[in-house]
């Protein structure tokens, strides 16, 4: 069970000796069915509040993973989390912001196939200088299975890559049959596009604007619907090259 819990922790986590914590999670794992056929719920608490309850342990672990991610992303003081896919290409980051199911993970996978370095399919993590840091969870692609998603192992072993300046912001979503004919975005429009996917935008708007403005300085920003990921990879890489 502990290994499953460790898998719920965000990338780059480190054990800590601290005796005071910001948030305390408690997991009570339900026992298997007894002789009477009774099953007990698995329960998850965040501080003193019950967060999730289910007979299925994986559902509760998913709730744990999701809550930890959001808690870290919304409360980070030295990083700004933007919901986006990220790859590195020749020393620059390609950031693809988007809500769930916009097809960003598929495009990230296609870019990796073309030789880009995997940074994240979940968050673009900006520091105060506007550089993008890796957040390399296992790449998660949606499919039609009951679970609703399929996890691919994180590409490439070895050291986590370093932070990169932003090279290209590609605001796009998958539309069957669409042809990738993006229009350039002005700096201001690019900034509000990113702000629309920033986890802590409401809690820290001034900081978000300042970080995003720094990140976008001198960057190319494009917006448009796309068709199949494989068909746009060359154009995306060409734009940042």
């Amino acid at each position: 069970m502990l290994s499953h819990i460790v898998n719920c922790l965000p990338p780059g986590y480190r054990p800590s000796e601290a005796t005071r914590v910001d948030r305390l999670y408690s997991l009570v794992v339900g026992r298997p069915a007894s002789g009477l056929g009774l099953r007990r719920f698995t329960l998850l608490y965040a501080d003193a509040m019950r967060l999730a309850r289910s007979l299925e342990v994986p559902e509760v672990l998913r709730a744990l993973e999701s809550d930890i991610q959001l808690y870290v992303a919304a409360g980070a003081r030295r990083r700004l989390f933007v919901h986006a896919g990220v790859v590195g290409w020749r020393g620059r980051a390609i950031v693809i912001p988007g809500r769930s199911m916009s097809g960003k993970s598929t495009l990230v996978a296609a870019l990796i196939e073309a030789g880009a370095t995997y940074y994240s399919d979940e968050y673009a993590v900006f520091d105060d200088q506007g550089r993008v840091h890796p957040y390399p969870r296992a790449l998660s692609l949606r499919d039609d299975s009951v679970a609703g998603r399929r996890e691919l192992p994180m590409p490439g072993p070895g050291r986590a890559p370093g932070p990169l300046p932003l090279g290209l912001l590609a605001v796009t979503r998958y539309r069957p049959g669409a042809r990738w004919r993006p229009r350039p975005l002005s700096l201001g429009r690019a900034e509000i596009e990113l702000l629309g996917h920033t986890v802590a935008a409401r809690q820290q708007p001034a900081r978000a604007l300042s970080v995003l403005s720094r990140a976008l300085a001198g960057t190319i920003a494009l917006k448009g619907a796309r068709g199949e990921a494989a068909d746009v990879v060359d154009a995306v890489i060409g734009a940042v090259s």
Binding site: M49, R62, A63, G196, H197
Partner: peptide, 20 residues
């Protein structure tokens, strides 16, 4: 501007039902 959860990854229906 999104509330935090709107900028999160999606959940399945079962995962949603497990939440409180």
């Amino acid at each position: 501007s999104p509330v935090s959860a709107e900028a999160a990854s999606c959940l399945t229906d079962a995962e949603c039902r497990a939440l409180i």
